[in-house]
Write a protein that binds this DNA or RNA. Structure first.
Length: 373
DNA sequence: AACCGTTCCAACCGCACGCCC
DNA sequence: AGGGCGTGCGGTTGGAACGGT
């Protein structure tokens, strides 16, 4: 169905906003709320279309917007989510509290995309560029699997975004402790924390799903760096091969804030059924999550209302984040890593890029019985 | 200082979708 | 059912800022 453009009226101002216009818009919204955007400009005394006002508000004037340089953690999240979701900026933005989709999109286009390209990674597919040559091998099969996973993950994020919006509407005045212990995911993601069992006050949260399937296991430990201002995230990946009772423990530790210091590529051979993450981002939090059932959209939807949603979210994020970053040889991704650092030996460079994608695939493969594949 | 190319980001544009009548 | 409206979303653009010559 067609519709007339909202900004075709003559006399409406376009282009950059002046401080006076900002002030008018702010003052009006503070007093009345925005209500109908179409009607707002006239009421607020602005010669703008409603759409322009909405954009200005949501992308710039809103008080809960964080501006300025993206942290490394934020960069990591963007890359990781973009690998799953593609250019679905609003979905990505739900995982970056206080950042707008527009800002994330801009940052991707101006910074991250170029960095990945320089690493020889296609910023669209997140595949190493010479991957196209290996079309019939397992890698492409894995890629298809990942794509499939991305589809339901995408749907899940949409549902989450809705929850977030509803939560924001309903719970504007929630006391801070509701989210104070949910590391990293906070603010707009607080919806995860509003359900029963959603708070992470308890030092230990355990959830177990019943079932007989080989079980991926996710363990998250938040061991505080006591007395340290900068918590030092530690990722522990525990791989359990299906044919063996032996548990292979692969440990990766380092500062999340220093991508370059994250370990090298040996540990992304985490195998089929088990993965655990250890992080000391948080004070005395220790979460162990045993997943008896494979990951399914249904179970994750259920989880989204409670602790498991939080834990899973965190696990997924931290897991992907650290896998990606530790394995991608992030010499070029870090701001402090100059591009020239990429000029190392050619084989190392190639290996790094290969590991970048493999790390995603390996984590996906850690739940081989998931019906989503 | 002047010019020019590049980078960055705020803002615009047009489409899609849900809701309401 | 279908048209209008409000809003969300992703792609694109214009111009300011910056850096090199």
């Amino acid at each position: 169905m067609g519709r007339s453009p909202c900004c075709d009226k003559v006399g409406l101002k376009k282009g950059p906003w002046t401080p006076e216009e900002d002030q008018k818009l702010l003052a009006y919204i503070e007093e009345h709320g925005h209500g109908s955007w179409r009607a707002l400009p006239a009421k607020a005394g602005l010669q703008r279309c409603g759409k322009s006002c909405r954009l200005r508000w949501t992308n710039y004037l809103r008080p809960d917007i964080k501006r300025g340089k993206f942290s490394l953690q934020e960069e990591q999240t963007i890359i990781q989510l973009h690998a799953l979701l593609g250019n679905r900026w609003s979905a990505i933005a739900t995982h970056l509290p206080k950042r707008t989709d527009n800002e994330i999109k801009n940052y991707w286009n101006t910074h991250l995309k170029k960095r990945l390209a320089k690493m020889g990674i296609d910023p669209v597919t997140h595949k190493q560029k010479n991957d196209a040559l290996s079309s019939n091998d397992g890698q492409s099969k894995n890629s298809a699997n990942l794509s499939h996973m991305a589809q339901w993950e995408s749907a899940r994020l949409e549902a989450e975004a809705r929850l977030v919006r509803e939560s924001k509407l309903r719970c504007h005045s929630l006391p801070p402790h509701h989210t104070s212990n949910s590391h990293y995911i906070s603010g707009s993601n607080s919806a995860w924390n509003t359900g029963i069992g959603g708070d992470l006050e308890s030092p230990t949260s355990s959830l177990t799903f019943s079932g007989n399937a080989p079980r991926p296991q996710v363990t998250m430990m938040h061991n505080s760096g006591i007395g340290s201002e900068n918590a030092m995230p530690m990722i522990e990946l525990v791989g359990t091969t299906s044919g063996s009772s032996e548990t292979e423990i692969i440990k990766e530790e380092g500062e999340i804030n220093d991508w370059k210091n994250l370990g090298n590529s040996d540990h992304h051979n985490l195998t089929e059924n088990s993965v655990s993450f250890t992080s000391n981002l948080h004070h005395h939090d220790h979460m162990e999550i045993s997943m008896g059932n494979p990951w399914t959209p249904e179970s994750l939807r259920l989880n989204s209302s409670g602790t498991m949603g939080n834990a899973m979210e965190d696990a997924m994020e931290e897991g992907f984040t650290n896998l990606l970053l530790s394995d991608s040889g992030d010499r070029s991704l870090s701001d402090s890593g100059k591009d020239s650092d990429n000029s190392g030996s050619g084989s190392d460079y190639y290996e790094d890029n290969k590991n970048y994608w493999n790390s995603i695939l390996n984590l996906v493969n850690s739940s081989p019985n998931s019906p989503m594949f």
